Structure formats: structure tokens, C-alpha cells
Computed example of a mutant assay.
Amino acid sequence: MEQQLTVNVVTPNGIVYDHHATMVVAKTISGELGILPRHAPIIAPLMIDEVKVRRVDSDTHVDWIAVNGGILEMRDNLVSIVADSAERERDIDVTRAERAKMRAERLIEEAKQREDIDEVRRATVALHRAMNRINVSKHQ
């Protein structure tokens, strides 16, 4: 009876994360999803949010990953996350994320003044991504 998960996070740039875990928690469009070993197979679309991975070596060893949407698949104790972009907490450039946040906030205000709904939506997504990266970086 296998009591661990293998967790892979993959982006177009390659593998971002590949470790063994006892638990994974991710936010799907339907709500928060916790996955333990032997979880039933599932495929779920992810929100822009953090993914929490409790490692097998210690209950206190938790990795955090900023995932910008994507798909999570659980099958045969393998959790695969495919995302456009993802970063581990230790790899996040906080200064760059802060600049992206400020740029997105400025773009939102400018787009609102022009009443450009599409640009407001795009800038809002960029803001959520920047805020997610900033929040995950605080777990270090």
C-alpha cells in the first residue's frame, strides 16, 4: 500500500517541481482540493493560487508553489499539474513581482478611465498573478 504521492509541476519551460509528498492542497475553480495517497482519479482546472505540498521527509517540510491556473490530474498516486507558469517560493523574484503588481494596478486604472473592459480584465489577471507570487514568496 503506497503511502506517498509523486508531485510534478510542469510548464512550457519544463519541470518546475518533482518530489514525493504525503499531501497536496490546491485551489480549483470548484474550491479547495486536498489530495492524499490513494485518492480517486480526478482532473480539475486550477485557479491562480498557491499549491501546498507536504513533503514525505517531515510533517513540517512544506513546499509552496505559485501556480497561474492550469490543470491538476491525480491518478495512481501521481499528482501532475500542468500550468502556463509556476514558481516555487524560493525561486520567486519578489522585486520583479512587486513591479508587476504596480504595473498591473496602473494598467487597470488607465483602462478604467478609457472604459476598456477587455484591458481591465487582462490587467486584473496580471494583478492576480503578481499578488499570488508575492503571497507565496512570504512562505519562505
Results as ranks from 00 to 15, higher is better:
residue 98 E to W: 02
residue 82 V to Q: 11
residue 109 E to W: 02
residue 62 V to P: 00
residue 108 I to A: 03
residue 21 A to S: 12
residue 63 D to A: 12
residue 137 S to Q: 00
residue 53 V to A: 11
residue 95 T to L: 15
residue 82 V to N: 14
residue 51 V to W: 01
residue 44 A to F: 10
residue 14 G to P: 03
residue 95 T to P: 02
residue 71 I to H: 04
residue 98 E to F: 04
residue 15 I to D: 11
residue 54 R to M: 12
residue 56 V to Q: 04
residue 37 P to N: 09
residue 76 D to K: 10
residue 30 S to G: 15
residue 86 A to T: 02
residue 12 P to G: 08
residue 130 A to W: 02
residue 124 T to L: 14
residue 95 T to C: 12
residue 126 A to N: 10
residue 61 H to D: 15
residue 103 R to I: 08
residue 49 D to L: 07
residue 118 D to V: 13
residue 94 V to T: 15
residue 131 M to G: 01
residue 17 Y to H: 08
residue 125 V to T: 15
residue 117 I to K: 15
residue 1 M to K: 14
residue 58 S to C: 09
residue 97 A to T: 04
residue 100 A to Y: 06
residue 131 M to W: 00
residue 98 E to D: 10
residue 85 S to K: 07
residue 104 A to R: 00
residue 51 V to R: 05
residue 50 E to N: 09
residue 132 N to A: 07
residue 73 E to Q: 15
residue 121 R to A: 14
residue 120 V to H: 02
residue 115 E to M: 13
residue 65 I to W: 00
residue 121 R to H: 06
residue 106 R to L: 12
residue 87 E to T: 03
residue 24 V to C: 11
residue 84 D to S: 14
residue 12 P to D: 10
residue 17 Y to K: 01
residue 19 H to C: 15
residue 23 M to V: 01
residue 64 W to V: 00
residue 134 I to R: 00
residue 13 N to M: 15
residue 5 L to T: 00
residue 31 G to A: 12
residue 18 D to Y: 08
residue 113 Q to W: 05
residue 20 H to V: 03
residue 35 I to L: 14
residue 81 I to T: 04
residue 104 A to L: 09
residue 63 D to I: 01
residue 73 E to T: 09
residue 129 R to F: 00
residue 52 K to S: 05
residue 16 V to F: 06
residue 51 V to F: 03
residue 101 K to T: 10
residue 138 K to W: 11
residue 120 V to Y: 02
residue 7 V to Y: 01
residue 125 V to P: 00
residue 111 A to I: 05
residue 81 I to L: 15
residue 123 A to H: 01
residue 120 V to I: 13
